[in-house]
């Protein structure tokens, strides 16, 4: 696990709870306690009302694919071993949108509107990336 060569997220103090959550295999969404906005990506202050009163709620971990692409080439050397890989934008049921990878499936089977669920990839002992796989019918 320590030979992970790909970039790991550059974590900010206010986004640390998100990454502590993924480490426990929980997907957390930031929520403003003042105005109720659900926020992705996490900020220091609410981007809607500038409140500092920020909290977290646990997401169901389900969503639908808004757009996707299968990358075949043109990546840095450290990503070569993953080719081809699926990059996608996922609309979570909770109403926020994230960029991520779709895994555990044939890239050709990925489509817009497809239902996906979160799967946690423990890439190092400290970092867990949330990824997505098709929901089995």
């Amino acid at each position: 696990m320590n030979d992970y060569r790909k970039p790991i997220p550059q974590i900010q103090p206010w986004s640390a709870p998100f990454w502590e959550g993924t480490k426990k295999h929980e997907l957390l969404i930031q929520e403003c306690a003042e105005c109720g906005a659900r926020i992705f990506y996490p900020r220091k202050y609410c981007p809607e009302c500038w409140s500092s009163n920020m909290g977290w709620s646990r997401a169901r971990g389900r969503g639908r694919i808004y757009s996707h692409t299968t990358t075949m080439t043109g990546v840095e050397t450290k990503f070569l071993e993953d080719l081809p890989f699926v990059l996608a934008i996922i609309d979570l049921d909770e109403g926020v949108r994230m960029t991520g990878n779709v895994v555990d499936c044939d890239p050709d089977d990925v489509s817009i509107g497809m239902e996906v669920e979160v799967v946690f990839d423990d890439v190092t002992s400290e970092i867990t990336l949330p990824k997505w796989r098709p929901v089995k019918k």
Partner: peptide, 21 residues
């Protein structure tokens, strides 16, 4: 660098997402 790059985004990849949609 936190929310895109770890997933292998590139300019081409981002524009591919937009083109696809």
């Amino acid at each position: 660098l936190q929310w895109e790059y770890p997933f292998g985004t590139t300019y081409n990849g981002i524009v591919a997402l937009m083109s696809q949609r």
